[in-house]
Simulated scan of single mutants.
Amino acid sequence: MIRRAFIQELGGGRMEPEMRDVLGGLQERGIPAELFTAKRLERRQLPLDRETLVAGDVPSVLGALGQLGLEPPPTNDYPRSLEPFLHRRLWTSTVRRLVACIEDGSSPPVFAKPQGRKKRFTGHVFGTQEDLLYLQRTSLSTPILCSEVVRWRSEYRVFVIRGRIVGVRHYAGDPAIPVDEAQVERAVRSLEEAGEGTAAYGVDFGVLETGQTALIEWNDGFALGSYGLDRSLYTELTLTRWEELTGGTPSR
């Protein structure tokens, strides 16, 4: 059970909205919390244990897990069980191959992003020589995920705790165009039945110009953008995933 927490601040009391929500949510639960900066964590100045939540950005959460002697969780942006919901072709490649295709004009534009947790560049549609400027500081051997270029009419994040959808928040496109809720529920059920989900996570879905509801990507339940999800639910999601990552006793 979580008995206290460290919540990341940016310095001078500045905080990301999600961290303010967690701080408020913990106060409502009577869990004492202290703010920390990334520098304090890096200097090992925080007394960490498995009953202490660390909420912050991805490097900070992974750094805290490392200090506890725990391996970082694997990334899985596109779980196998969700492939039928992609509605577009997806493949792995490298920056070297992408650059070669763009330079010789041998392929249509593709969307590409780094594979794995290290975001060496931002996901982008690559189709011209000018687009290669996004890769200037990226190693040619960097593995990437590529997909056909599609047009999203609207995009949503679906929040799941212990296999149950607890919230859906719009974050891009036309909010008047909703996702197919039945399709989303089928996707989450497939993920849970395959055992590919975690105790808490977010999974992004959108509506294509064809009208189909399609998977955008799966997101782990730590350091997750909330897009205004109710702070009590976001706090529960954060606690649930941290307890799973550290092998702690789930809070109820």
Rank of each mutant, 00 (worst) to 15 (best):
V160F: 03
V168I: 15
V184I: 14
V166I: 15
G163W: 04
V184M: 06
A182Y: 09
R189I: 02
E192Y: 08
T198N: 11
G197Q: 00
D204M: 00
E185P: 08
V207R: 00
R189K: 13
E181A: 15
E196V: 03
G206Q: 08
Q183W: 11
E196F: 02
V179W: 03
R189V: 04
L208R: 03
A199C: 15
E196P: 02
E209Q: 12
P178W: 10
G167Y: 05
A176D: 10
D204S: 08
R164D: 14
G197F: 00
V179C: 14
E181N: 13
G206A: 09
G211S: 10
P175K: 09
V158S: 09
V168F: 11
V203I: 15
G202N: 00
T198L: 07
I161P: 08
E185T: 12
S190H: 15
H170R: 09
T198C: 10
E185F: 09
G163M: 04
I177F: 04
A182R: 14
G195F: 00
Q183P: 02
F205L: 15
R162Y: 08
V179H: 01
V179A: 07
D180W: 06
L208W: 01
S190A: 15
V166H: 11
D204T: 06
D180H: 07
R162F: 07
D204A: 04
T198F: 10
R189D: 12
V203L: 09
V166Q: 11
A199S: 15
V160R: 01
V168C: 13
R186Q: 13
A187I: 05
P178G: 12
A199P: 07
E181M: 14
V166T: 14
E193P: 01
R169H: 06
E196A: 00
